[in-house]
Design a protein around this nucleic acid. Structure first.
Lengths: 97, 97, 97, 97
DNA sequence: CACGGCAAAAGCATTC
DNA sequence: GAATGCTTTTGCCGTG
């Protein structure tokens, strides 16, 4: 019996498992996307401007991420401060912090 | 009592509901995306070429028919550019022009 | 003489023209990217922290777009103000403006 | 007179130079991207399938050799998944396993 | 109902 | 080789 064939079969089974699990997860994601779309349609039906809603959602998301981003900026600029505090570029950077 | 205020409050409550439900769905999607990423890492660890896996999954989603159709057009264009691939598929696609 | 063949030839020539022009533009872009990379290497050689430079550049880009984005937000929220000014959601939105 | 300040000023000037040169290059890249977009719009207007054109361009960049190699692996994986394509390419690729 | 613009997602390269 | 960020692609929505 050829061991290579067995190896190939086993590999094929694992591959199939990976692919199917991935596709399953994708299906669930698609279903959730459909739910979101439906939700927006519902909101529109209730008289809301969906653009406003989308904007609010984006705004909230940015708001949550803003802190981390801001902290990263501060960290980076702190490294540069010794060099640039006495320059227009450095001043404007400082003003933003 | 001002009826407009009540209307506004009710509308805002509905809006808030929409926004929160949407964000909840988004969180679930993000979690599934993380699962997919993890899955691909696992596949990579098992020695598979994840890029190829992704391609195969895409092709499966496209469907065999559309895939062939798309490939035929690609062959036609390549032929036009002098990239003579000389496959039966390319030849028959060319004939269709 | 077969008119279809002529048509095909002409189409092929146009296609080739499009493809080559596109690739030419791409080459120029790649050259510019190489210049950018070189520039960063030079900066690094001059003792600068390239991460800082990249951050500054990103920051400046965001800064320029910020105004337009902010204006768009205001525009959107103004439409919603009549509805939501008397709610926490509306209040927080207002505070951001 | 404080030498550190001078050093800082000089450093800042160099930094500013780097940043501005980088941004200039970026602008040029953006302009070229716009040209590409325009070009594809033109191609679309001429009746071409721009998505296919993009694919062909990508394949050309990849090079014929790598392209065939990649395709062979894809066929192998598809075979393992039961998508029996039964092409010579796929068969020979399979044999290599 | 096709088109173009815009925002989200994916793929890719580069960095450490 | 993991992880960040940039480029490209894809899907979506409003508009003519």
């Amino acid at each position: 019996m050829d061991a290579t064939v067995n190896t190939g079969v086993v590999a094929a089974e694992r591959l199939q498992s990976f692919v199917e699990r991935y596709e399953k997860l994708q299906e669930e994601k698609d279903a959730l996307s459909a739910d979101q779309k439906e939700l927006m349609a519902e909101a529109k039906g209730a008289g809301f401007d969906t653009k406003v809603i989308k904007t609010v959602i984006r705004d909230r998301k940015l708001g949550t991420g803003e802190c981390a981003e801001r902290d990263a900026l501060i960290e980076v600029y702190k490294h540069a401060l010794g060099m640039f505090v006495d320059t227009p570029l450095g001043q404007s950077a400082l003003r933003r912090l």
